[in-house]
């Protein structure tokens, strides 16, 4: 798909219409062309599409502002909390215990049957196992703990399960990914499958992977979660945003994690 020149691409779109018009009218909301689940080829990290200065910032542990959140997370990991005054480390031990954990999220919690992303799992430990006051979505301590846990998987390939109980969540995420939304009437797929590597105004559209999250984003002047990024994309097409912790975010995140299968975790990423 990527090898063709823009003109050839336009022509392909026009020609493709001959075959896809019928499918289109049966389900006017989806793009039709990308209905089957596809991974971009070749898979490329989000950082590859960032400006060189931003890439350099991410690569240098001392320059990467996201490392501040990692350091704060390391502290919180050892801090006793809740009724039993237990720290994460009291149960889990040192950093090594979290190696690879982030590559398996989102996943279905066997006890509740709910889909949890990494933040959700940490919140669950915090409220159920530490019996401490719940952490709010997108709060600084949650971002710090998530950045620290994700950092332990840096360089390891994403490998979520989409079988068994995860399957229906995955399917709904996939459908939502193809769904045109908002006043601009665009789907995730139309930007991140069909147009990655191209310019949307001053921004280069990436393949839309979540492997760098939480990221430090210059525009935010702070760290933010994948869910926050999804809200930015939705607001960009003038679509209603999903709330933090919503089923819609989790299902989309599972689809994204599958789509990024094999791609290494690069958290904490840096973005413009």
């Amino acid at each position: 798909m990527r090898a063709v020149l823009p003109c050839a691409w336009l022509l392909a779109v026009v020609l493709a219409c001959a075959g896809c018009t019928v499918r289109e009218s049966a389900d006017p909301g989806t793009t039709g062309v990308h209905a089957a689940p596809v991974r971009p080829v070749p898979l490329q990290q989000g950082s590859v599409f960032a400006p060189p200065s931003v890439q350099a910032m991410q690569a240098d542990e001392f320059e990467n502002p996201g490392m501040l959140w990692v350091a704060r997370g390391a502290k919180l990991w050892r801090q006793p909390e809740g009724s039993g005054a237990r720290s994460c480390a009291d149960c889990h031990g040192d950093a090594g215990s979290m190696r690879g954990a982030a590559t398996r999220y989102p996943q279905v919690d066997p006890a509740s049957g709910q889909l949890l992303d990494l933040e959700g799992r940490i919140m669950q430990c915090r409220s159920e196992r530490q019996q401490a006051a719940p952490l709010a979505w997108e709060s600084e301590p949650l971002l710090a703990l998530t950045a620290w846990v994700a950092f332990q998987s840096r360089g390891l390939p994403m490998q979520v399960s989409i079988d068994g109980p995860a399957r229906p969540f995955f399917e709904r995420g996939r459908e939502r990914y193809q769904q045109r939304v908002g006043q601009m009437n665009l789907s995730c797929s139309q930007c991140h499958d069909a147009n990655w590597g191209r310019q949307l105004g001053a921004e280069t559209i990436s393949q839309g992977h979540g492997t760098g999250y939480p990221v430090y984003r210059l525009e935010w002047q702070g760290a933010g979660s994948l869910q926050r990024r999804l809200r930015s994309c939705l607001s960009g097409v003038r679509a209603e945003m999903f709330p933090y912790g919503s089923q819609e975010h989790l299902e989309l995140s599972l689809y994204l994690a599958w789509r990024a299968g094999g791609l290494a975790i690069e958290a904490p990423g840096v973005r413009r």
Partner: peptide, 22 residues
């Protein structure tokens, strides 16, 4: 072009999940 990525600038129907102000 039914598959175009270009938004329709003067159409209000057939859109989903449009944010409140619009």
């Amino acid at each position: 072009n039914p598959n175009t990525i270009m938004p329709a600038y003067f159409v209000v129907d057939g859109l989903r999940q449009v944010a409140e102000p619009w």
